[in-house]
Structure formats: structure tokens, C-alpha cells
Design a binder for these strands. Structure first.
Lengths: 104, 104
DNA sequence: ATCGTTTATCGCCGATGGACGATGAAAGCT
DNA sequence: AGCTTTCATCGTCCATCGGCGATAAACGAT
């Protein structure tokens, strides 16, 4: 996963409300839009915007059902991102103590 | 891990240059500042700012060695974040096909 | 046809982000 | 003392974000 792609996904997740939405979508297969709207004390337009950001990052997809929309996570993207993070974390070589403890 | 904390870490990672820096720091235990500066075609002040963002998010720590600085990743933070992402991903229940394929 | 429901988009605003150059501070070297 | 190296901070500029209300678009129901 390229730096740019990782940064894009991270940017999409860089807001508590969007993390909340992602958790919500992960937790339930039923993902009607108005449930998302009802779950947060924000204007409908604001949440719609957050959903748009998540869709543009490829994390969320949606399709209309009648007058409503069904949102759900795109399979694999979150896994890939988490795995990419884990990969980096796995290569960490801690600061060598002989160079001084890495305190702030 | 709270939504807020996850969003903070994600925000710190929401820039290709910072992803690059994190990879760099993960790859080598030697993490003198000027190596970071030399590795990127950006002004020194710009990179210093990126490092500050990473430090404020708790991803990076640093300590002075003589006139230089040594930067390194804070152990565990990246793992925790990756694990939190993986946790969410693990709970994903795909859109039920009976409700229509989740195409864009 | 008209209305209500649901969602997306627009325009606006204040706040934040990201880049730069310039300046400042700390430490080592001569 | 004076110079160099290394890094942080400041001020400025422009772009983007995040919030809102208002409005539009799509659709089902009456």
C-alpha cells in the first residue's frame, strides 16, 4: 500500500464522527442512512458530508433502496489498512538504549 | 481505543510525508533528524512541523544528542492502532445480498 | 398532482493545515 | 569568543475542513 493511499484512508478516518460511523456500519448489516443520521447529534447535511468523505476514500459504498440509501463498508479496505499499519509496526526497531533512552 | 483517540492517530497519519517518516523511523533504529530532513525534498521547517504533529499524537518521541535530535517511534502505539482497525474490520457483516448488492 | 420523507448539494463561515523563509536557541568545534 | 551545525518556532500565505441552514432531487403515498 502506497504512502498516498494510506494517507487517504487515514484522512478519511481522521475524525471521531467518521470513526463512529465506521464502527456503526461494521456492527450491523442493516445500514439505512436515517439510522446513521438519528445516531448522531449533528445536522443531516453534516453527516451526509462525512459519508461522502468515507465513500470517496473507498471505505464505504451505498446503493439506493426506494427513497432511502443503504450504506455499508467495502470489504477488505479496513483489513488492508490495518494490516499495512501492522506491517510497519512489525519492522520497528526500538531506539538503542546505548544512545540514550528515547524519552520525550 | 476511543473514537477520539483513533481519530487523533489517524489524523497524524493523514499525510503522505508523515507516513513516509513513520516508515523511515520504523525501518532504522538510527533516527537522527538530519537523515529525515535529507530524505525529503521539503524545507527543514516543514519536516520539523510534521515531526511535531507525530510527536503530539504520541507516535514519535525524541531526545537530544549533542546538537542533534534522535527520533524514534513510540513502541506499541502503531500496533494498538492497527489492532483497533483490525478489530472493527473483524466485526464487519457484509451487506446482505437479499437487500441488493452494495454497489456504488 | 401534491405532499412527506430521505438524501445530496450548495453557499457561507470560522478554524485548521501545510508550505515557506526568516529567525532563534543549543551545543560542539577552532 | 566566534562560527557552524542542527533543530524549533514564528509569521505569512493560501487551501482545505467542518459545521450549519437552505435548497434541490428522487421517490412513495395519498
Amino acid at each position: 500500500m502506497t504512502d498516498e493511499r494510506m494517507a487517504l484512508v487515514a484522512k478519511a478516518l481522521a475524525h471521531p464522527v467518521r470513526i463512529h460511523i465506521v464502527r456503526l456500519l461494521a456492527a450491523q448489516s442493516e445500514c439505512r442512512g436515517h439510522e446513521v443520521f438519528a445516531d448522531l447529534p449533528l445536522a443531516q447535511s453534516t453527516i451526509s458530508e462525512h459519508l461522502r468523505v468515507l465513500k470517496e476514500a473507498g471505505l464505504v459504498q451505498s446503493h439506493p433502496v426506494g427513497t432511502a440509501m443503504v450504506y455499508c463498508l467495502v470489504g477488505g479496505v479496513l483489513e488492508e489498512f490495518g494490516a499495512a499499519i501492522g506491517e510497519i509496526a512489525a519492522t520497528v526497531s526500538e531506539c538503542e538504549p546505548d544512545e540514550g533512552a528515547c524519552d520525550e
